[in-house]
């Protein structure tokens, strides 16, 4: 059953990575709001990690799919769809000219993502421990 544990471990790290990326974006937005950095830098920093975030999330979903964790995959799907939709509509990048008007929305969106990911993280940890214990028996 090593494979299962390995897959949970891998998804755990991917989720950690995603959380980091989201938190980084949130911090850029918070900095912007309180004027530590100017909108140009903020937008540049956020935009530089958006694509990695999308890719990581895609990989995570794919991992759930191929390892047969259907329920986790289904839970991933809304997030994935949202990302794909944003990407298709070319709305995924932060717009530096409108960043202040969109600030609340951008923040809210990322906080929701963060909450989503944290739930995921707990689920993953649960499954990880569960499969380790199962393995022991």
């Amino acid at each position: 059953m090593d494979g299962v544990i390995l897959s949970w471990l891998l998804s755990f790290f991917l989720e950690i990575g995603l959380v980091c990326l989201i938190v980084y974006q949130l911090m850029c937005l918070a900095d912007l709001e309180f004027d530590y950095i100017n909108p140009y830098d903020s937008a540049r920093r956020i935009n530089s990690v958006i694509f990695p975030e999308f890719v990581t999330q895609g990989v995570l979903s794919f991992l759930f799919l191929v390892t047969g964790h259907w329920i986790m995959f289904l839970l991933c799907v809304p997030y994935l769809c949202y990302n794909v939709r944003m990407y298709m509509h070319r709305q995924y990048l932060v717009d530096v000219t409108e960043i202040f008007n969109m600030l609340n929305w951008e923040k809210k969106q990322r906080l929701v993502k963060l909450a989503y990911l944290v739930i995921f993280l707990f689920l993953t940890i649960f499954w990880l421990i569960y499969s380790v214990l199962e393995d022991d028996e």
Binding site: V19, V23, M27, A30, E33, F34, V118
Partner: peptide, 25 residues
Amino acid sequence: SRFSLQLFSFLSVSLKVKVSLLVLL
């Protein structure tokens, strides 16, 4: 930064692991 505080309190509750990371960052 009100928001940062918010964020922090949130993080400190649910994500203690990451706080140190955050601070570093």
